[in-house]
Design a protein around this nucleic acid. Sequence first.
DNA 1: AACCCTGTGTGTGTTGAATCACAGAAAACT
DNA 2: AGTTTTCTGTGATTCAACACACACAGGGTT
Lengths: 236, 236
Amino acid sequence: MPERLWYLKHCDLFQQLTMQQLTGLEARCRSKTFPRGSPVYLPADYADAVLLLAEGRVKIGGFTEEGKQTILAFIEPGEVFGELALAGSTEREEYAEAVEKSSVVLMPREALEALLAENPQLALGVTKLFGLRRKRIERRLRYLLFRSNRERLVHLLIELAERYGRQNSEGVELTIKLSHQDLASIIGSTRETVTVVLGELQSEGRLSIGRRKIVLKDLPELASSVNVPVPKLAEA
Amino acid sequence: MPERLWYLKHCDLFQQLTMQQLTGLEARCRSKTFPRGSPVYLPADYADAVLLLAEGRVKIGGFTEEGKQTILAFIEPGEVFGELALAGSTEREEYAEAVEKSSVVLMPREALEALLAENPQLALGVTKLFGLRRKRIERRLRYLLFRSNRERLVHLLIELAERYGRQNSEGVELTIKLSHQDLASIIGSTRETVTVVLGELQSEGRLSIGRRKIVLKDLPELASSVNVPVPKLAEA
DNA sequence: AACCCTGTGTGTGTTGAATCACAGAAAACT
DNA sequence: AGTTTTCTGTGATTCAACACACACAGGGTT
């Protein structure tokens, strides 16, 4: 299946590999598709593969005993997830769910480990990936503690703008559709409070909200109100 | 200075290196000592080195604008910190402080990067280190969200027991001295609440507290009360 | 000794946010 | 089209945790 190779080839992580290495890896991979809402893996699953998202969108998170969801991250096409399998874990600790119909490439752990051992460049890439995600999560942790729901939400919106923001005539529009419940699950709050706080922010003129759509009217002002640097947008 | 070499040699990360590589690295390092309470590095410092703690104890964390401290981790002798410098950061994001008189070895980033490029084993080790710490912090995040102060504290105590617990006749004693303020800074709470909750737990017979000293009377019971597996103790 | 200074214990407001409980609106199905 | 499900908006109520304010204990230090 040549398209699988295409996905591997276009993954940032594998840019340094030779064509031979790529096809070797490809031969050991398998593909799988998941319907919207279905789990990709569950906590305590055996972690024998790293996954590459080809299409769709996946969320990584967990649940409390009372059924409350926490969202740790969203994965976009071309990104790798479940990579903690490379760090010595044999079990998943988190939960990965396809939020849209998604297709993923499963890369067996041993295949990757073999590649890593012979390819320092790749190992460096993996290290950077780990580091990047760790930095992101440490930042999250630091701004979640001791901060009001409002601050957490504003901070989150700014973070989202960095990845999903697109400048238009009204301001910066978030190109990812998230429900209030999703936002709450990220900042550790409840749907209702998110609704209320968003309403406040709107009536203050800082943003405008539609159904699953948010436009930040004045990103720099918003950023300075919570003492963070103004992010550059990834999208045009 | 031969003792610096000794510290490098006894760091888990560098087990795979040849003597030649070690001495090469050693030649490029510098040592420094920090008195109790002094900062090792600050946010926005230039991150040109990874640090190895030789003696003492260091805490990693951050501050909010209002001066509240969050503690992300404690570093013990033999452990590496500030390693995010290897992941492409040029600036520190966090704050590192010596909580006791500490001596550290500074390893310049370029020296380590050169070693990494030629030594896949080492790269793998760094990856594992990143992964381990990331797992730890993701777990923290997941249990901080949506949980009461009490649950967070209990969870923390169990986590501490895993690293610092020593079995004695009374139960499991935590061999790290932490003030209530410290505990609060880790779980994102206040000193007073921690005092109260600890008091409750004591009067329930689950633990006994002394000045900067905590003994968990029944670790398995405590663990099951928050639905986590009973940890194995690192110390005898 | 007397003195600090850092921890700890407790009580009393005050409040932000969770919970509960609906109602209307838009999307997704069939 | 109509029906169902998922979202959103809003209020009333309750409660956990914070802030503030002291009092006291223990360890050091001089």
